[in-house]
């Protein structure tokens, strides 16, 4: 792996501040769902890469899809890229979701906010995926999700699906499953494993939900990063047991993660 220059195939704004970027890059070759890239902004005064999850990877075409929210100066520069533009990137990095271990299982993919994109790529590699996603108000990527599996949605303002968060939606469904539902989730079957990505309060609630039902749960974490490759120890998360690298209780999100078994991290 090397830092390389990707070419923008297309970029679309798909919701307020949310961009859908396709890049031609050899990093697409070995990308696994749940891995991420360090994306550089093209401005040398911004030294550090921005960690962005891989939404989908097409190894044959050599294309990666990133879906991201414009937050600060770096993602703003990224949003200004047009077809044919160049972007420096490093990746794929990190471990990714354990899709191989749960290929034929009922996997519930729970996403909130800008945590939804990596679930798309993960779901394509599973035979029985179902989604539970939470938005503030405006939804995005919904069509992509519906193409892959059944989708349970929640919005804070109630404009789509259950009013509230994803857990509210799951609890409502548990209380009142739909016998003629589209898939195993809506019919009231319990998931066999959960993959989740989203803001920390959501991840905590998801981990608690999984623990109560004794379902294995894998969460993708966010932390501020400098190197993205495990060298600087900037991006650690608290673990319950001694970590294998520094022999304290701090695993590197960029290297041992970003996906962790929720029982192994102190969320």
């Amino acid at each position: 792996m090397q830092k390389e220059t990707g070419r923008v195939v297309s970029q679309k704004k798909i919701a307020e501040d949310i961009f859908d970027l396709r890049i031609r890059t050899s990093a697409a070759k070995d990308a696994r769902p749940g891995q991420f890239l360090m994306v550089f902004t093209g401005d040398e005064s911004r030294l550090l890469g921005r960690p962005i999850s891989i939404c989908e990877a097409d190894a044959k075409k050599g294309e990666l899809r990133l879906v991201y929210r414009q937050m600060g100066a770096g993602t703003r520069a990224l949003a200004a890229l047009a077809e044919g533009g160049c972007v420096e990137l490093l990746g794929p990095l990190g471990n990714g979701f354990p899709v191989k271990d749960f290929q034929d299982r009922r996997v519930l993919l729970i996403g909130g906010g800008i945590g939804i994109p990596p679930l798309v790529g993960a779901a394509w590699q599973l035979s029985r995926p179902a989604f539970a996603v939470g938005y503030r108000s405006e939804s995005y990527l919904l069509e992509d999700l519906e193409r892959i599996g059944e989708v349970l949605a929640a919005t804070e303002d109630g404009s789509l699906g259950t009013r509230g968060n994803v857990i509210d939606a799951l609890l409502a469904l548990e209380a009142e499953p739909k016998a003629g539902g589209a898939g195993w989730l809506t019919r009231g079957l319990c998931p066999e494993v959960i993959f989740a990505c989203g803001p920390m309060p959501m991840l905590r609630a998801v981990a608690a939900y999984a623990k109560e039902r004794a379902i294995p749960c894998f969460v993708s974490l966010e932390e501020r990063m400098a190197c993205g490759v495990g060298a600087c120890l900037g991006c650690v998360t608290k673990t319950k047991e001694t970590d294998g690298h520094s022999h304290v209780k701090n695993a590197r999100v960029c290297k041992e993660g970003p996906v962790f078994d929720s029982r192994e991290v102190a969320l």
């Binding site: 030294l47 932390e223 501020r224 650690v236 520094s246």
Partner: peptide, 19 residues
């Protein structure tokens, strides 16, 4: 072994960073 500081541990600054 030293555990180090709580996170966030790094922040970008113009042409540099804090750690």
């Amino acid at each position: 072994p030293w555990e180090g500081n709580p996170t966030p541990r790094v922040a970008e600054t113009p042409s540099g960073m804090l750690n």
